[in-house]
């Protein structure tokens, strides 16, 4: 478990920058936790405060119950060995082959050569680079380099993996394969993963929880589906725009306005309910006619959610709407769009 309590970090200099301000955050074991924010929001500072690459000015950071700020430098190095980290620009040693890069953290821990070899072979297998063992980083593609980074970050059987924009230098397809790999190691090893990104798609793809950070403050956090569906801040909404269409596009809205009679409602649904034939049930129970005018369905992890614009006509409109709300759907009247 990673815990931040009132963490503040100020970069001093000609003009002071408050990179983190009073951050409280709890990341539980085994979670894939996403941190999203615009450039300069303080994302990197936040993860770097976990392994103390940056030292907070105020507050408490604890990792698995260990108060990181109270450690001697020797103990800090021991704790750092339990926390893997991968980077946007991979940061592999160009003078070492793939296998020697992966063996590097084991060398630091003075693991005997024989054990190192076995471990490296196992990790190469895990990240699918067995045939590249003897290659140098300069001979690899970006995706392959990041795989080496991941293998290296797991070599000491780390319990936590920090990813600072680990996919930002990669194309969408490679990003996907790296995210799949992260998901796999999370499942197989139960490792806690903290992912920093400015791409909502990354969050949508693999995160369980998400925190939105702006100007050094966590402005929103929670389970991914909930934050995605009910963003309360403008920043969160901005991120969502490109990812999930929960809003009726203006040109569609204009067209809908032309259809008169009845009432236009927008329903937003999430997860479980979508499996049930709710609309069908509504029509059979109440005296209403339903016309589906617009819809959008998306998938976040295993959970389906989306939005439908319906036109209801008939005497029992009100009852039908109440029924939908009872079923846990968010209903919004948009007759006046």
């Amino acid at each position: 478990m990673i815990q931040f309590e009132n963490v503040t970090k100020v970069y001093k200099g000609e003009n002071e920058v408050v990179a983190l301000s009073d951050v409280d955050l709890t990341i539980k074991d085994g979670e894939i936790f996403g941190i999203i924010g615009l450039s300069g929001a303080g994302k990197s500072t936040l993860v770097r405060c976990i392994n103390l690459l940056e030292t907070p000015d105020k507050g408490r950071v604890s990792v698995n119950g260990v108060d990181m700020l109270s450690l001697t430098s020797r103990r800090l190095r021991e704790e750092r060995k339990k926390i893997g980290m991968i980077f946007q620009h991979f940061n592999l040693l160009s003078s070492r082959t793939v296998e020697d890069n992966i063996a590097f953290p084991l060398e630091l821990s003075k693991v005997p050569k024989k054990v190192r070899k076995e471990k490296v072979a196992e990790l190469l297998e895990l990240v699918g680079l067995t045939d590249k063992a003897r290659a140098y980083p300069s001979q690899l593609s970006g995706g392959q380099k990041q795989r080496v980074g991941i293998a290296r970050a797991l070599a000491n059987d780390q319990e936590i993996l920090l990813c600072d924009e680990a996919t930002s230098a990669l194309d969408p397809q490679t990003t996907r394969s790296i995210l799949d790999l992260l998901k796999k190691i999370n499942k197989e090893r139960g490792i806690t993963i903290v992912i920093i990104t400015h791409e909502m798609n990354v969050i949508k793809e693999i995160c369980d929880k998400v925190a939105v950070i702006e100007d050094g403050r966590i402005i929103e956090s929670g389970v991914v589906e909930e934050v995605l569906l009910n963003p309360t801040t403008d920043t969160a909404k901005t991120f969502l725009k490109g990812v999930i269409k929960t809003e009726v596009p203006p040109e569609v809205a204009a067209r809908l306005k032309l259809s008169n009679g009845g009432e236009l409602i927008q329903i937003t649904f999430l997860g479980g309910e979508t499996g049930e034939p709710i609309i069908n049930e509504m029509v059979s129970k109440f005296d209403v006619l339903v016309n589906i005018l617009y819809g959008n369905i998306d998938q976040v992890q295993d959970i389906t959610f989306g939005m439908l614009v319906l036109k209801l006509t008939g005497p029992e409109q009100k009852l039908a709407k109440a029924f939908l709300e009872d079923k846990g759907l968010k209903v919004k009247v948009i007759s006046d769009v």
């Binding site: 690459l53 021991e78 704790e79 750092r80 060995k81 940061n91 592999l92 040693l93 590097f104 821990s109």
Partner: peptide, 29 residues
């Protein structure tokens, strides 16, 4: 020698001596 590489070694718990011998010198060899 790339700052990022040095930082990665620090994040892995390398000592100053280990960084000199295993990172700085080989990378700049």
């Amino acid at each position: 020698v790339d700052k990022g590489i040095i930082e990665a070694a620090q994040a892995m718990g390398a000592t100053t001596m280990q960084i000199i011998i295993k990172v700085l010198l080989p990378e700049a060899f």
